[in-house]
Amino acid sequence: MAVLLRAKRASVVAKEKMKIEYVDVLKPQGTEVVVKISHAGVCHSDVHAFEHSSVYALYPFPQNPGHEILGTVFSIGPEANGADEELKEGTSVLVYPWISCDECDRCEQGWHNWCLSGKSRTIGGARAGECGYGEYVTVPHPKFLISSAGIEPELAVILPCCGLTSYSAVKESQSSKISCSDGVVVIIGTGGLGLMGIQWAKKISKQTVVGVDISDSALKIATDYGADFVVNSKNTPDVSAFIKSLDIKNKTVEAVIDFVNNVHTHKLANSLCVRGSNLVIVGIAGGAFETNLMMIPLRGVRIQGVFVGSIPDLKELVEICRGGGIRSIVTKRRPLAEIQDALADLQTGKIVGRSILVL
């Protein structure tokens, strides 16, 4: 295949060791589109690749993380059509990276995040290959590109993962047939995902938003991003009593979204649910939790897992962002040369909000 150019790309080559090297960017074939990357988000799941932990430990080095990608169309394959808008070089786009087999029923409906075959082709996933931590990325089809026109770059770049995951979670939290529109939605974990979740909840629901974390500094920022009330669950063990003490009309907990999902947060989330509540589980911290099976039908709590979101979901939230009212949570900007430090800072808890690479 013809080489289009050579460009920089960062790889995890050993545990907690990044290496930047030049790779061939091939001329796009068929439906492929080459995107020149302008910004890339540094997601906490990339830390697992950096550490060679979680699912990333199942795959050998090198690995190429980096799945939040914003850029411009650089080169278009001869059969690249099917985009929502006319595709031309220079168009500003964000990349939907959750690409799987593209053949099963789920993928054909746009639900690549729920692919039935398990044949992941995720951009910036656990395998070596295309990623966002580089200067260019090749996307297999233009349907995975969404125009970012009208959205500031520092907001657009975090939408394919942080924005999409939190938006999908809030949508699921509002899906109960019996919930009251003016009840309470509890958001556990007010880091990057939680801050976006707070904004989506304020945008698409009328419920009172209560942010829960064990960091006072994180809770202070959560208030700035729209949380109506915040509580430190480390200092306030009875969060349910705290909610009941609030001076609001409807104190019914209609939904709990757990953006952490470890043993402690899941126990808290489950305890806050009342009959008919929605419990949305997002985080992958992991662990195990026992429950009384009889109480599942008696309580009627709807438990829903969320793994990022679909292409239609991403298009929905892009339109919401174009309408205004959603703020970027980016607090740190670095060049590609500092990807090692960017991941190390996120690993050690030095990042509040989101950090990004600016190329």
Rank of each mutant, 00 (worst) to 15 (best):
L246H: 12
S233F: 04
N270P: 00
I303H: 12
R327Q: 15
S217I: 09
V282C: 08
G77N: 06
V230K: 02
G300M: 07
E89T: 03
L70Y: 04
M196G: 03
K171F: 04
L26C: 13
G183K: 05
I284V: 15
G30K: 13
K15S: 10
Y225Q: 04
Q109M: 14
I204L: 11
C104R: 05
H264W: 11
P28C: 06
Y56V: 06
L268A: 05
M196A: 09
V42H: 07
D102C: 14
L116G: 04
N261R: 12
D105V: 12
L357W: 03
L293R: 11
I204K: 08
V35N: 01
T348K: 15
A201H: 04
K234H: 12
G353K: 02
G283E: 09
G150W: 04
A57M: 01
Q174F: 15
C273Y: 09
Y133K: 04
A337V: 10
V139S: 01
C180Q: 15
I123T: 08
L26G: 12
S271P: 03
G191F: 00
S117V: 00
L343E: 03
H264P: 01
A83N: 06
N292Y: 06
V47I: 14
G30A: 13
S355Y: 07
E89G: 00
M294R: 12
K220Q: 14
V13W: 01
V137M: 05
Y225N: 02
G287C: 07
E135V: 02
I329S: 09
G90D: 02
E16G: 06
S181T: 15
K203W: 02
V330W: 02
V260K: 02
G129D: 02
L145C: 07
K17V: 15
G287V: 09
